[in-house]
Nucleic acid binder design. Structure first.
Length: 198
DNA sequence: CCAAAGATCTACT
DNA sequence: GTAGATCTTTGGG
């Protein structure tokens, strides 16, 4: 029983056809979903950062088009998955106005479905604390089983990708905006968005 | 070719 | 609070 489950709809490509600093706050409250076989792993997005492309020294797109960052140029709504410090797979989604480049890094989720598989993937079965499980870009990658070779370039506006973003209408109550974390260049811009209430 | 840095996390002092 | 892990990509010689 209980309340009816809210209907989830896929985000459309047009959602991502806007500057990253506009898309990043709008992604708060949306749901990232990864299907592995019959198992669904999902969580509500509660922290994002915008990376502005060619004009942003902190962006992976700053130095221009290359094999490593091609997802950030061209079609929007694609998964940009990269390995950082040789250890952590992080997920961002390409977002920019036509003719530009850029993306939005997913920094934290509130886990929804598949929590025990997430805790297993994180290496401590049974440990389900949300902050530990999916609080941080590297933790999201590990908890959801995301890696560059499998997921880089997937279209998150299509369920067939097995990795997608949906909207169940809940959104995010109040948003706080701060400087971005973990960067040394262009560190002073207010481009980090955190969901305070869900 | 080699060196260095990187949109990070964990463990240990 | 600081250091170590571990590897891809980039920039300099």
């Amino acid at each position: 029983m209980g309340l009816p489950s809210p209907k989830r709809v896929l985000l459309r490509r047009a959602f991502f056809d806007r500057p990253p600093q506009t898309v990043a706050p709008d992604l708060l409250g949306k749901i990232l979903v990864h299907r592995i076989g019959d198992t669904i792993l999902s969580g509500r997005i509660v922290e994002t950062e915008a990376y502005l492309g060619l004009d942003d020294p902190a962006s992976h797109a700053y130095t221009g088009l290359s094999a490593a960052n091609e997802v950030l140029f061209g079609t929007t709504g694609l998964a940009h998955v990269y390995l950082i410090y040789g250890l952590h797979h992080c997920l961002s989604i390409s977002a920019h106005a036509k003719g530009h480049a850029g993306g939005v890094l997913l920094r934290a989720l509130l886990p929804m479905e598949g929590i025990d598989m997430m805790s297993r993937l994180r290496g401590k079965p049974g440990k389900t604390d949300a902050g530990w499980l999916t609080g941080g870009p590297g933790r999201i990658g590990q908890a959801l089983g995301i890696n560059r070779s499998t997921h880089n370039g997937l279209d998150v506006t299509r369920k067939a990708s097995t990795l997608w973003v949906a909207d169940d209408g809940f959104g995010c109550g109040s948003i706080s905006i701060t400087k971005r974390i973990g960067i040394t260049k262009a560190a002073d811009h207010p481009l980090r968005f955190v969901c305070q209430q869900v």
